[in-house]
Each structure stands twice: as C-alpha cells, then as structure tokens.
Amino acid sequence: MKSLYENEMKLEFLSKSNNEAFARVTVAAFAAQLDPTIEELSDIKTAVSEAVTNCIIHGYENTEGIVKIIARIFANTISIEISDTGKGIENVDLAKQPLYTSKGDLERSGMGFTIMESFMDEMQVESVLGLGTKVTMKKLIKKPENIENIIGNKSKISMRAD
C-alpha cells in the first residue's frame, strides 16, 4: 500500500510514565530527517511529552491502556497524532484554558494544551466521553537555507585564509 505521505511511523506503548521519555525521543528521531534546529526539536519533544502525559494521567488515570502515536512527514511539515482510548474530556474548551487543571492535587500546572498550542503551529483536540481523546499537532520545519549560505561563505573565507 502506497502512503499519501513522504514518510510515516506508528508507535504503540503501555500507558506507563517511564514511556514518556521513550515516546518524545522516538518522535524527535523521526522528525530529525526534516533537519530541524535544536530549538524546533526541543519544541516537538516538549509537545509530545505533554500529550503523552495527558493520555497517561487523564485519559487512563494511571490504569493500564495503550497510547498510540502516528507521525507523518509531508513537505517540510511533521504531523503528530497522539491518542488514547481512555475516559475522554468532558469540556475540551475548558481543558485548553491556560492554568486549568482537573488534577491540581497532583501539582499539575494546567499548561499542557497551552504549551502544545504555542510550541507547534497547529493543534486540534478531538474527544468523546468514554471513548478517548486524540490530539493532532503540526509543525512546519523551516529550512535554514539563508544560514547555510552564511556558514558556507564563512568556511570559504577561512579556507582562503588558511
């Protein structure tokens, strides 16, 4: 079957908190083929970490479930879909409010969706009570052609000086 995308990957893992690091590092490694800057890569890792943490503590409320990630690359854009089949979100608009948390007792800051929204270019939340939640995020990786030109010129200059 031919994919509509230039590249695609799927990842499924148990909703254990020590898989958070595994998930963000794996997606970052997949995103690396777009040649992102360190800052862009760090943004992606943070957004993935937020979404996966939500699946584990809110979706499954620390019970066992499967977290699913699909990442796709198409024309300098990475799209990342992170979903659970947990309890779902009653009021998505409320959940997206900065500093809103349903788990203040766990020292949660309520900044998860706000961070995903601002670190990525696009974010969408679909949720059905009792069925689960899916977060879709997109980020355009800007090709640093100008920077390459500058560095290229510099290396030529230094070679001449040598």
Binding site: T46, E107, S109, M111, I115
Partner: peptide
Amino acid sequence: SFMDSSGIGFLLG
C-alpha cells in the same frame, strides 16, 4: 536537558 510542564508544578510546589 529537558523539562515539560511537569516542572512548573514541581517548582511551585
């Protein structure tokens, strides 16, 4: 090398 929003609640706590 990495911190997500868990660090906010952690520091404020």
